[in-house]
């Protein structure tokens, strides 16, 4: 899809001031930012966790996730999420 803001070579980082962490009291992963919080569901949490842990390209991220999810092809879902996350200013290129 050509209108996507990311491609396989894009290196992703969390936007400035954003912090990823596991919240035991909420029993989910969250993204914290100035005066706000986003609760992430399982899949979204895994993606953001990987982005917060290491600087890598989208292709590498997808490869890691595919491995973690037993070879299921997640590329479309990941791209869809990344677009959404970018629109919400959670991620930077």
């Amino acid at each position: 899809m050509s209108d996507r803001v990311f491609n396989d070579d894009t290196v992703l980082v969390l936007a400035q001031g954003y912090r990823f962490q596991w919240e035991p009291a909420q029993n989910c992963n969250v993204l914290l930012y100035p005066e706000g919080m986003v609760k992430l569901n399982g899949g979204a949490g895994e993606i953001v966790k990987l982005i917060s842990e290491k600087k890598q390209t989208v292709a590498e991220l997808i490869a890691d996730l595919t491995k973690a999810f037993d070879g299921v092809d997640l590329a479309d879902d990941v791209y869809q999420f990344l677009d959404e996350a970018y629109k919400n200013d959670w991620l930077r290129k």
Binding site: N41, G43, A44, F81, E84
Partner: peptide, 9 residues
């Protein structure tokens, strides 16, 4: 915040 993503919320 909410995440209105296809991956879910």
């Amino acid at each position: 915040g909410s995440i209105g993503s296809a991956i879910g919320k």
